[in-house]
């Protein structure tokens, strides 16, 4: 969570709001923020930390683990229409890489601005050429994307 809090201003510049969710109460969220996270991220956690003690929200998103009574590391990117564009779920011991989330935000926002006329190839980074699906591109992807292009 501190990784997301740390990059919050970058996410805000992209017009992205953040919610974190766990099965801890809002009281525990306050303690965690006040006693630990605020020492890792200046000003503490800037976004709402949601409490879902019965796992109702987690169940709806497929991240509730009833055996452990916890929620798995699920990350959902939701567009302005309320549609889930990307999701990633990890088991607890491995943390996420926020840079990949930011890359996907750039890509999904670019595609949305193009009103679906453009697509981004594997490994696309902002500023790189996109694909314009259509008759002219069939069989010609090799001209714009080659194996090894992904960094």
């Amino acid at each position: 969570m501190s990784a997301v809090a740390d990059k919050y201003s970058e996410l805000q510049k992209l017009g992205v709001e953040v919610l974190s969710v766990s099965v801890d109460s809002h009281f525990v969220h306050k303690m965690w923020n006040d006693h630990e996270l605020s020492r890792m991220v200046e000003g503490g956690v800037p976004f709402p930390m949601v409490s879902d003690q019965a796992g109702n929200v987690g169940r709806a998103y497929g991240v509730w683990d009833e055996n452990q009574g916890i929620e798995l590391r699920g990350r959902f990117l939701i567009d302005p229409d309320g549609v889930i564009q990307a999701m990633e779920v990890l088991t607890p011991p491995v943390g996420r890489r926020l840079a990949e989330t930011v890359r996907q935000i750039h890509a999904f926002q670019h595609v949305r601005r193009s009103k679906g006329t453009e697509a981004t190839p594997a490994g696309w980074e902002p500023g790189q050429p996109t694909l314009k699906p259509g008759p002219a591109l069939v069989g010609k992807v090799w001209e714009v994307w080659k194996p090894g292009a992904e960094k």
């Binding site: 997301v4 974190s20 306050k30 303690m31 709402p48 930390m49 798995l72 990350r75 926002q109």
Partner: peptide, 28 residues
Amino acid sequence: AYHKGGFTSVKLSDFAGKWLLLCFYPGD
């Protein structure tokens, strides 16, 4: 939810019109 020193209530659909990153994690 806990947000910036206060307790509040959050509704997902209130974020309509914005991009939103929803992150679940195992525990505080």
